[in-house]
Amino acid sequence: MSRGIAKVFRRKFGRVHELRQSNPEVGEVLQVTEEGTNRKIFCLVTKKASYQKPNYEDVWNPLCLLREVLLAEDLR
């Protein structure tokens, strides 16, 4: 997580070490609750390395999973 949107995520929210420790696989949705607030941050894993290009399925699957998580937790 050192390039592109991941770099912005690290600068703005930090806590990247928590995401890396979970050993994410492509297609997963990672969730972090911001300290001091009830705000939740979701990170969709669409590729293994920053230099790769995600394919349609690698983007579609985490989006569908994110939808299920949002509906289950009644988040908007």
Results as ranks from 00 to 15, higher is better:
16 V>E: 12
32 V>Q: 04
72 A>C: 05
59 V>M: 10
23 N>K: 14
65 L>T: 15
1 M>C: 09
32 V>K: 06
35 E>P: 05
75 L>D: 05
16 V>S: 06
11 R>C: 09
46 T>H: 02
45 V>Y: 01
33 T>H: 00
11 R>L: 13
2 S>L: 13
67 R>A: 11
62 P>T: 09
25 E>W: 04
43 C>P: 01
55 N>E: 10
59 V>R: 07
3 R>F: 10
72 A>Y: 04
4 G>F: 07
51 Y>F: 12
40 K>H: 08
18 E>G: 03
59 V>L: 10
1 M>V: 11
71 L>K: 14
37 T>E: 00
32 V>P: 00
20 R>E: 15
47 K>L: 01
65 L>C: 11
8 V>Q: 08
50 S>P: 10
15 R>Q: 08
11 R>K: 15
37 T>V: 02
14 G>V: 08
8 V>E: 05
68 E>F: 06
61 N>F: 13
70 L>F: 02
30 L>K: 10
60 W>H: 14
2 S>N: 14
27 G>C: 07
71 L>S: 09
10 R>Y: 01
25 E>K: 15
36 G>M: 00
35 E>C: 03
26 V>I: 13
1 M>T: 11
17 H>K: 13
27 G>I: 10
22 S>H: 03
68 E>R: 14
45 V>L: 02
50 S>V: 13
48 K>L: 09
41 I>D: 00
39 R>A: 04
46 T>C: 08
13 F>A: 06
39 R>L: 03
66 L>E: 03
49 A>V: 10
30 L>I: 03
74 D>V: 06
52 Q>T: 11
36 G>C: 05
31 Q>L: 10
56 Y>Q: 11
6 A>H: 08
1 M>Q: 06
68 E>A: 12
4 G>S: 12
19 L>Q: 00
35 E>Y: 04
68 E>M: 07
39 R>Q: 07
12 K>R: 14
21 Q>I: 07
74 D>S: 10
21 Q>R: 15
45 V>T: 07
63 L>M: 15
15 R>I: 00
59 V>N: 04
50 S>D: 15
28 E>W: 02
51 Y>L: 07
63 L>Q: 10
67 R>Q: 13
14 G>S: 08
76 R>S: 13
71 L>M: 12
18 E>L: 13
76 R>M: 08
30 L>A: 01
66 L>H: 04
24 P>K: 09
